[in-house]
Amino acid sequence: NKFNKELGWATWEIFNLPNLNGVQVKAFIDSLRDDPSQSANLLAEAKKLNDAQA
Rank of each mutant, 00 (worst) to 15 (best):
S31K: 14
A44K: 09
N50S: 09
F3Q: 10
E6V: 08
N19Y: 13
E45W: 05
W9T: 10
A44V: 09
A10R: 03
N50E: 01
N21C: 11
D30S: 08
L7N: 04
N41W: 13
F3C: 15
N21S: 14
S39C: 14
I14H: 01
I29T: 03
N4A: 11
P36K: 02
E6S: 09
N21W: 10
L7Q: 05
L43T: 03
G8F: 15
T11V: 15
A52E: 11
D34G: 09
R33V: 09
Q24I: 04
Q53A: 05
L20Q: 00
N1F: 03
N19D: 03
I14C: 08
F3Y: 08
Q24F: 02
S39A: 14
K2E: 12
N41L: 10
L43W: 04
E6A: 07
W9E: 14
N41V: 12
Q53L: 10
D35G: 02
F15H: 09
D35V: 04
A10M: 10
F28E: 00
P18S: 08
K2N: 13
D30I: 14
V23Y: 14
K47G: 02
N50K: 01
A40W: 10
E45I: 10
F15S: 14
Q38V: 04
A54G: 11
E45V: 08
L43R: 02
L20P: 00
L7H: 03
K48L: 07
V25N: 01
S31E: 09
D51G: 04
F3A: 15
D35Q: 08
I29P: 00
D35M: 04
K47T: 06
F3P: 11
V25Y: 03
R33I: 14
N1H: 11
I14Y: 03
L20C: 02
N19P: 00
A52W: 07
I14S: 02
I29Q: 02
G8E: 15
F3L: 12
Q38Y: 04
D35N: 11
L49S: 02
K5R: 05
A44F: 07
A46I: 01
L17V: 01
V25Q: 06
A40T: 07
S37R: 07
D34M: 12
N4G: 12
S37H: 05
L49P: 01
N19G: 03
N16T: 08
A54I: 06
W9Q: 14
N50A: 02
A54C: 12
F15Q: 14
N19A: 05
K47P: 01
L17S: 01
L42T: 07
K48I: 06
P36V: 04
F3S: 13
F15I: 15
E6C: 15
T11W: 14
G8Y: 15
I14Q: 03
K47V: 08
L49M: 08
L17M: 11
Q38C: 13
N16R: 05
A52S: 09
V25I: 13
W9K: 13
P36Y: 04
D34A: 14
S39R: 05
G22D: 12
E13H: 05
D51R: 12
E45C: 12
D51L: 08
E13T: 06
Q24W: 03
Q24N: 01
P18K: 06
E45A: 13
T11P: 05
A27T: 08
A52C: 11
N16I: 08
W9G: 07
E13V: 14
Q53R: 04
T11N: 06
A40L: 11
F15P: 02
T11F: 15
G22C: 15
N50P: 00
K5A: 11
S39Q: 07
L32I: 11
E6P: 04
S37V: 04
N16G: 07
N4F: 12
A54V: 08
P18R: 05
A46S: 02
A40H: 11
V25P: 00
N41R: 11
K26N: 06
L7E: 07
Q38I: 06
T11Y: 14
L42P: 00
L20I: 02
F3G: 11
L20F: 01
W12E: 15
T11R: 07
A46M: 05
K47R: 13
A27L: 10
L42H: 03
K47A: 04
S37T: 09
W12T: 14
S39V: 14
P18W: 04
T11E: 15
R33Q: 09
A44W: 09
V23F: 13
A44N: 08
E13P: 04
N4Q: 13
F3W: 09
I29K: 01
Q38M: 08
I14L: 09
G8V: 15
L7W: 10
K47M: 08
A40K: 11
D35K: 09
L49T: 04
I14V: 05
S37L: 07
A52H: 09
D35C: 12
N19E: 03
D34W: 08
L32H: 00
V25F: 02
N21E: 05
S37I: 04
G8R: 14
S39W: 15
A52F: 07
E45G: 04
N50I: 02
K26D: 03
F28K: 00
N50M: 01
D35I: 03
N41A: 13
L17F: 06
S37C: 11
K5Y: 10
Q38E: 11
K48N: 05
N19F: 14
R33M: 15
S31L: 12
K26P: 00
A40P: 05
L49A: 03
L42S: 02
N19T: 03
N19M: 05
P18H: 06
A44P: 01
L20H: 00
P36A: 03
L17N: 01
L7F: 09
A54Q: 11
R33L: 13
P36N: 02
A54L: 08
F15A: 14
E6I: 10
K5F: 07
L32D: 00
V25G: 00
N50H: 02
E13I: 14
A27G: 08
A40N: 07
F28C: 04
V23D: 11
F3E: 13
K2V: 08
A27S: 12
L42A: 03
N16S: 08
S39H: 11
S31P: 01
S37Q: 06
A44I: 09
L49W: 03
P18M: 07
I29M: 07
N16L: 08
A46D: 00
G8N: 13
L17P: 00
N1Y: 02
Q53P: 02
E6Q: 04
L17D: 01
K47L: 06
K5D: 15
W12M: 14
D34V: 09
F28S: 00
L42E: 00
V23H: 13
S31V: 07
A54H: 08
D34N: 13
D51E: 12
N21L: 13
D30W: 03
V23M: 12
L32F: 03
E45Y: 06
T11C: 15
L20N: 00
K48G: 06
L49N: 02
P36I: 06
N1D: 14
F28V: 01
K48R: 13
D51I: 09
K47W: 05
D35A: 06
G22L: 13
E13N: 03
N16C: 14
A44G: 04
L7M: 08
F15Y: 13
G8C: 15
S37F: 04
A40Y: 08
D51W: 06
L42R: 03
N19W: 13
L42C: 05
L20E: 00
S39K: 05
A52Q: 10
W9L: 13
K2Y: 11
L17H: 01
Q53V: 06
N4K: 05
Q53C: 13
N41T: 12
A10E: 08
E13W: 13
N16E: 04
D30E: 10
K26S: 06
L7T: 06
L32N: 00
D51P: 00
V25R: 11
A46E: 00
A27K: 14
E6R: 04
K26H: 09
